[in-house]
Structure formats: structure tokens, C-alpha cells
Design a binder for these strands. Structure first.
Length: 592
RNA sequence: CGGGGCGUGGCGCAGUCCGGUAGCGCACAUGGUUUGGGACCAUGGUGUCGGAGGUUCGAAUCCUCUCGCCCCGACCA
């Protein structure tokens, strides 16, 4: 989206141009509010953004920003820009159409998969509509640095990304085209990277705070990029696509895909080992079925799943009450990709149909055991034969645990890995992510600088992203009530919402005077000058959500006082015309 | 990609089972009365019923194909 590329037509310079502000009269503005909820919006921010006239859907995963929506987006962008600049980062503008050569250099032309839009020009040259810009930035930086003296450097842009999402959803939260602030730091060594990373940690906290967003920074996985530290900035939300584990005691906070937990050892010491016994279990396959069939708690069962890790079969064994965390498994195995094995592969490995896999008698396939498995006494597991399970299964005696790791997801109630107190779960929307990238790109794309001794070294990178549109959605998600949006002043589309309730020509001209006085004092005013009922205007104002409302109506025409009302609390006060500008200035600063 | 649902005026929907003049609310236009929490009266305009093909005297409705959208799942910032 050429939001930053100034696509406006060139205009003749106008001398002494002064805005008349006419465009901010609602009667002349485009802010199409809706009384009814759009039928295809399910979450509150999506509904409100459409109803308040900020965005319109163009098609699945693509949205039009109408004038007031764009104003909000720009305010968020400005905050991000100011804070990034303050941190010392340098702003660029990268092409969105990137040549395939770049991606081939890093190897991602092949590994990116279908989420990257690929296109050809008329000559058959291949391009990608950039889903991210590691390669592009690495290439520019490579071309302009040559010495350790040039580092550290942190480069960024605020620009559109394209991703062919499997399923766009929740309005602007997951779309095919979105604006992202992406930054990449280059340092000569780990200490430098740590410094850059810490600077971004602080910068991100400031950015979200200024946007009026309460975020929960959590430990996260670094994804396929490798690297060590990683922090995601999450906004708590029912519709969040991520699950977080939080410790109320010590403040441990992690994404479920990364979260660790202390294992609870409650081995029933009194229970005697039983003999291994084979049981007919026709058609009993799932843990749920097994619980009913054996009338045993979930944790008695050994769930055995076959995966393909980089195409090699691997069995993962966990207790029945736990979910396998594929990411942990993948990381433990050091694999690039991991997926559930197709049925045919399962049958080949276990010699039985899907649903009857188990570790007893040690299959030839590599098997990874969760830490919980060793505690099981007289467990039940598949017998690697159709319609048969073993009971009385005991680790050590009936199978050998060679590879043991934490390969299950933490869940609410599990014990904090740091302090041992129970953790709780929360859903969250990811609005920002910072992580130490390492040398993946600087190595594959051969970035070198000379160090103090004249020796070639490969710089180390950090990567820092913020989803801008998503941030806007998250702000609405966090600031609304049953009547509409309640913008934080810092990102409000206008400074004030002026409502004129005038009944005669002279009253209209009085209200217009106030409007002009406000504009001339530098305020960005949305002026409801429509000839509709007061209730209609109030309801629209509530929906649009500008934090400060001024009403020129009954009380003004009676005793010359303008009514000021705060959207959030509903508090009102009446101010003399002469003191209005000053008072508005004070009120607008409160929230910032 | 699997499962489910939906496409009818600008928006929200009814009509589809059981074929027979396309409707309702809101919005819109004009005139009038109103004016501090989504006013009222009168008049008016608005539709290739998502698209294509078929069945039929006749299709929004039945059949076939197709496109789009939403939800759940898998997957992912």
C-alpha cells in the first residue's frame, strides 16, 4: 500500500494557503457510520472499525482505510517512527516487489512456501511481493558497510507486507496485505547485539505505552530463524491466536509454544508393578475412548504419535493428559520441519493401523519420551497391533527411555519453571516481536566487515517487527464500550468532536464560529454540522470515539457556556467561550 | 485444503422446504412538522435475487457447474 509513497498529484504551490477546515465538517466528510453490525464481522474491533467508518472490506483479507481510519493509522505510524528514530534506528523505504535473486541467495525462494506471493513480469523474470525484508535489508546493508566502524546499525521501514494467508480473519488482525514496521540490527558481536536488542525492548515498551496499549511481553520461540532471545508483545484478547502462560507469583510469561513448566512428581509409590498384559480393544483409538474403555485417568495412558521430522519417522510418547508441543519436539530433534506422519507411514512404522502405536518392546524408530513418561506406573498403551493395547506397562522394564525431553505444552495450572507456583492461561494477539536473528542471513548472503585487526568478520543480526494495522485493531479491542470506540487521545482520529445543535441560522453561525476558533487554534476538529436529531449525533459521536466532545447547544445559547464531555467517563463541564481553547488544550494533554 | 454456513436494493434481513406480479426495516430523495440520546407525516427512487447452463408454459425457489464471503480445523506475523 503506497501509504508512505506520496501518490498525490502535484499541485501548484498556493501562496498564503490556509485551510478553511471545511473538509472536517461531517456533512462534507466521509465517515460512513453504521447502525447495524456488519454480518461478517465477529470480533468487537472489526465490528467497531467498520461501524465507525474507519475501514471497509475490499475483499477477504484486504481492507480500505477511509479518511478517519487512515488518520489513526498515521498516528500509530508516527509514534512508531518517533520512537524508532529516538532509538537511533534509520528509516528506509524498500521496494515491495523484490527480485527472486535475493531470495535465492538466502535459500528462502525454496523454503518460503506458498505464503509468499510470487509473480513474473512480461519477460518471465521472477519476483516476490515481499512478505518480509530480511534479504532486502541485508543486501543494502552489505553494500554500504565495510568496517566495524560502520557498526552497529539498525535499519527499519514502515511498509506493506504481502502474505498469502491460509485464512485471513478478524478483519485487519490477519490480512493478506498489512503494514509492518520491520527493523534489522547489525552488530559485530554478541555483546553488541545484546545492546541493540535491549534498546528495542525499551523502545517497544514506549511505543505501545504511547499508543495506549497494555501489552504483555512474553518469552517466545525464535521460529525457524534460530537464535536465542525472543520476546513477543501480546495484547490480551479472547480472540487472540496465541495462548500465553503467565505466573502471577514471579512474573514468568511465555508463549505456550515456548513455555516451560516444572513437572509434578506424584508417583504412587504404593502401587505395585503389574505384569504386562495384552488386552483386546476393538476400535478404541483415541485417549477419550480409552479413558471410557479402561475407566482410567488420562495420565495412565501413553500417547504415541508418529511424526516425520525432515521426512524421517520419529515416535513421540507423552502421557494421555498432555498435548505434544511440536515446536519443542522439532527443536529437540534439531529438525527443520516436522509434521504428523500420514497414515501409511504410521502403519509402516508400527505395523498396525493408526491408533494402536506404543513404545513397548522398543520399535526400531527413533523415539522421544516426554519427561512425564518415566513416572507412569502400570500404564496403558497401544500394542502396535490392530485392536490391541497393553496394560501394566512400566518404563524401563517394558521399554527403554533413551531420548527424554520436555516435548509437551504447558497448560493452565502447571507449575512455573522459575518459582514453582501454578501458572494461568490467557489468549493474546501478537502485535510486536523482537528477537536475535543470528548470522543466518549475513552468512548466507556473505556480509563481511573488517574488525580492528583487519580480519573479516560476519555481523550478527537482530530482527524487530510491529504489526501496525493489528496494533490499531488491538487498541480498539482494548478501548471500547457497548456504545463504541473510546480512543486514547494519542491515536484518536481527531483532537475533538464538536457537535452543533443549532435551531436557527443565527445559532448555526454561532456554532460555526466556535468551530473556526478551534481550527484557528490548531486543533484537529470533527464538526458535526448535520441537520439530524441530537440523539443521532450523540450516538455517532459515541461510536466514533473521539475522547473529547464539545457541544454547542442548549446551554450555550442560553448562558454562553460550551459543554465539554469526556467519552470515557461521561464527565461533563461547562466552559465560557473565552476559556474554551485553553481548557481544551489542557484536557487533550491528559491522556498523552 | 477438510468440515459447516451464507450470497436477495447502500446496510441488516424475510421469501427458497411446497415454482406463479420480488418484500420488510434502516438508509437515500423531495416537501412539511420537529430538535439534548438513533423524531414524525406524506410522496418517491432503487434490484442483471452472486454467475453460467439446464428442467419448466413459468425459476430467487428445482437440477448441474462455478465464483465469492463467513465460521471451525490444519497452518501461520
Amino acid at each position: 500500500m503506497p501509504i508512505l509513497k506520496d501518490g498525490r498529484r502535484r499541485q501548484k504551490p498556493v501562496k498564503n494557503f490556509r485551510s478553511t477546515g471545511e473538509a472536517m465538517r461531517i456533512s462534507r466528510y466521509i465517515i460512513p457510520t453504521l447502525k447495524d453490525d456488519p454480518s461478517d464481522a465477529v470480533i468487537v474491533s472489526h465490528r467497531l472499525m467498520i461501524r465507525a467508518g474507519l475501514i471497509r472490506k475490499e475483499s477477504a483479507g484486504m481492507y480500505v482505510y477511509l479518511p478517519s481510519g487512515l488518520k489513526v493509522l498515521r498516528k500509530i505510524i508516527n509514534i512508531i517512527k518517533e520512537e524508532m528514530d529516538r532509538s537511533g534506528a534509520l528509516e528506509f523505504l524498500m521496494p515491495e516487489l523484490t527480485s527472486a535473486d535475493l531470495w535465492k541467495e538466502s535459500g528462502r525462494w525454496d523454503t518460503m512456501g506458498p505464503e509468499m506471493f510470487r509473480i513474473e513480469d512480461r519477460n518471465g523474470m521472477e519476483y516476490s511481493l515481499a512478505p518480509t525484508h530480511e534479504e532486502a535489508f541485508t543486501a543494502v546493508v552489505r553494500s554500504v558497510i565495510s568496517s566495524y566502524r560502520d557498526l552497529p546499525v539498525n535499519v527499519y521501514q514502515i511498509n506493506t507486507k504481502f502474505r498469502d494467508e491460509i485464512r485471513p480473519r478478524y478483519g485487519v488482525i490477519r490480512s493478506k496485505e498489512f503494514i509492518m514496521k520491520d527493523a534489522y540490527s547489525f552488530d559485530i558481536d554478541d555483546e553488541g547485539l545484546e545492546k541493540s536488542y535491549q534498546t528495542m525492548r525499551k523502545t517497544y515498551r514506549r511505543i505501545f505505552e504511547r499508543c495506549g496499549l497494555e501489552t504483555i511481553p512474553v518469552e517466545a520461540d525464535t521460529g525457524s530463524m534460530g537464535g536465542s532471545d525472543s520476546e513477543e508483545f501480546m495484547v490480551a484478547s479472547e480472540v487472540g491466536e496465541e495462548t500465553l502462560l503467565l505466573c502471577g507469583q514471579c512474573g514468568y510469561r511465555a508463549n505456550q509454544e515456548k513455555a516451560e513448566y516444572k513437572i509434578t512428581i506424584q508417583r504412587n509409590g504404593a502401587e505395585r508393578s503389574e505384569d504386562l498384559e495384552i488386552v483386546d480393544t476393538p476400535g478404541v483409538k483415541t485417549i477419550e475412548d480409552l479413558v471410557k474403555f479402561f475407566n482410567c485417568p488420562e495420565e495412565k495412558f501413553l500417547k504415541s504419535m508418529i511424526y516425520l521430522a525432515d521426512d524421517d519417522p520419529v515416535m513421540a510418547v507423552v502421557t494421555g493428559d498432555r498435548e505434544i508441543n511440536e515446536l519443542k519436539l522439532k527443536n529437540y530433534l534439531g529438525a527443520n520441519s516436522i509434521e504428523i506422519a500420514p497414515d501409511a507411514a504410521v502403519e509402516k512404522v508400527t505395523g498396525a493401523p493408526v491408533g494402536f502405536a506404543g513404545p513397548v518392546n522398543d520399535l526400531k524408530v527413533k523415539t522421544v519420551y516426554d519427561r512425564s513418561v518415566r513416572e507412569v506406573v502400570n500404564g496403558i498403551t497401544g500394542a502396535n497391533k490392530a485392536d490391541k493395547h497393553y496394560k501394566g506397562v512400566n518404563p524401563g522394564r517394558d521399554f527403554t527411555i533413551k531420548d527424554e525431553a520436555d516435548i509437551t505444552s504447558a497448560k493452565g495450572g502447571d507449575l512455573c519453571p522459575l518459582c514453582g507456583k501454578p501458572m494461568y492461561e490467557k489468549k493474546g494477539i501478537e502485535v510486536g516481536h523482537i528477537f536475535k536473528l543470528g548470522r543466518k542471513y549475513t552468512e548466507s548472503m556473505n556480509v563481511k566487515v573488517l574488525d580492528k585487526k583487519g580480519k573479516e568478520i560476519t555481523p550478527i543480526m537482530g530482527c524487530y517487527g510491529i504489526g501496525v494495522n493489528r496494533t490499531m485493531s488491538a487498541i480498539v479491542e482494548q478501548h471500547n464500550d457497548e456504545r463504541g470506540i473510546i480512543w486514547p487521545q494519542s491515536v484518536s482520529p481527531f483532537d475533538v468532536h464538536l457537535i452543533g445543535i443549532a435551531k436557527s441560522e443565527s445559532e448555526i453561525s454561532e456554532a460555526d464560529k466556535i468551530y473556526h476558533a478551534l481550527i484557528n487554534s490548531g486543533f484537529d476538529v470533527l464538526y458535526d454540522d448535520r441537520n439530524v436529531s441530537p440523539g443521532f449525533k450523540f450516538a455517532d459521536a459515541d461510536l466514533i470515539g473521539i475522547p473529547l466532545r464539545l457541544i454547542v447547544g442548549k446551554s450555550y445559547f442560553k448562558d454562553g457556556k460550551i459543554e465539554l464531555k469526556l467519552r470515557k467517563s461521561g464527565e461533563t463541564e461547562h466552559v465560557e467561550k473565552g476559556l474554551l481553547v485553553e481548557r481544551v488544550r489542557e484536557l487533550i494533554k491528559i491522556d498523552n
